[in-house]
């Protein structure tokens, strides 16, 4: 999938490219958010767009998440394709009513007369000690709601390809960017490409156990897999990339081959994405399992500030490695 010729760019650069390409392609794409104009966004996600798109298309909003999210929804019903940048997913909670009751339900309630082609962009995840108000994942809450698409990329390549697909989607998309990807350089092909929504990525092929990992947990799982391979254990690592719709087929096929499954999710354990994925596998491939499914999740506590505690509450490559060893023993 990756070639040696691919250039290395950061996650943020990948996001900038996706936005620039889609805004050039479709004049109906506009961005709402705090400081996304001339400043270029809190994380630099709209840097470089100001001269080309200006204040008509990069709309700096007041700190009114509820209103500007609702505005994005109304604008999408009236023919635009807004990207609503909420900065951190925590701030989406102030607009959650508009997301759940309007964006997610408009197509359904109106019997298909209206729809909401919009993208809600927010940063997620524990990263560099941001503390309890800037470190959450929260996608399980939104996975619960019919009508929403939930995307959690794990590489710069997918940030670009999936953001482009999300902007072209005719349904509301939550595009959740793990902060660990922002400044990391990764291989991304030159030029335009789209990554389809609803298609998992088999990041590493293996035979002894399957790992389904989300967001930063993909990186951790690949690190654990490399280490495990030295001990002769070959794990398959799957990144669902979109949690809704979920590519069950790829996960089930993998489990049918390896007969063992570990699901890794940074979100708090109760009702998280891992719980959903595990349940689907039990429903679809129980007879293929040689061992109980194991979950590694974010702890059922908030994300603390102090580095040792922050590290403690999420799965680590070491814990993943140890868990796989126990799973295949």
């Amino acid at each position: 999938m990756f070639t040696d010729n691919d250039r290395q760019i950061t996650g943020i650069q990948a996001i900038q490219e996706a936005l620039a390409e889609e805004m050039r392609r479709d004049p109906n794409v506009v961005v709402f958010g705090e400081g996304i104009g001339e400043r270029g966004g809190c994380f630099g996600q709209t840097k470089g767009l100001w001269n080309e798109c200006g204040p008509e298309r990069l709309i700096d909003t007041p700190i009114s998440e509820l209103a500007f999210t609702g505005m994005g929804i109304g604008a999408s019903m009236a023919g635009l394709r807004p990207v609503i940048d909420l900065m951190y997913i925590e701030f989406m909670m102030d607009a959650a009513g508009q997301v759940v009751h309007q964006a997610a339900k408009v197509r359904y309630m109106s019997g298909g007369q209206f729809h909401c082609p919009l993208v809600l962009v927010a940063a997620i995840g524990r990263y560099n000690n941001a503390g309890p108000h800037h470190s959450g994942c929260y996608y399980p809450m939104f996975m619960h709601v019919p009508g929403l698409i939930v995307v959690v990329p794990s590489s710069a390549r997918d940030l670009k390809g999936l953001l482009k697909s999300s902007i072209r989607s005719d349904d509301p998309v939550l595009f959740l960017e793990h902060k660990s990807l922002f400044s990391k350089k990764m291989a991304v092909p030159e030029g335009e490409f789209l990554t389809p929504l609803g298609q998992a990525n088999v990041c590493r092929v293996g035979t002894d156990a399957s790992i389904v990992a989300i967001g930063q947990m993909v990186e951790y799982s690949l690190a654990a897999a490399t280490s495990l391979a030295k001990n002769g254990i070959e794990v398959e690592v799957i990144d669902p990339r979109t949690l809704v719709p979920l590519d069950e087929e790829t996960v089930v096929r993998s489990v049918q081959k390896t007969r063992r499954l570990l699901v890794i999710d940074e979100a708090h354990e109760t009702c998280n994405a891992a719980a959903e994925i595990a349940t689907r596998v039990i429903e679809k491939a129980f007879d293929y399992l040689d061992a109980p499914i194991v979950r590694l999740s974010g702890a059922k506590v908030h994300v603390p500030y102090a580095p040792p505690m922050e590290q403690f509450v999420a799965p680590s490559p070491e814990r993943i490695e140890q868990t796989v060893k126990e799973l295949v023993a």
Partner: peptide
């Protein structure tokens, strides 16, 4: 709802339609 009348819905959420109308105004 009635798309042919640009009627963006009665709404079960109090004040829920106000930002939607502002969004339509923005699009206009």
């Amino acid at each position: 709802f009635d798309a042919s009348r640009h009627f963006l819905g009665t709404n079960g959420i109090v004040a829920g339609g106000v930002p939607l109308a502002a969004g339509a105004a923005f699009a206009i």
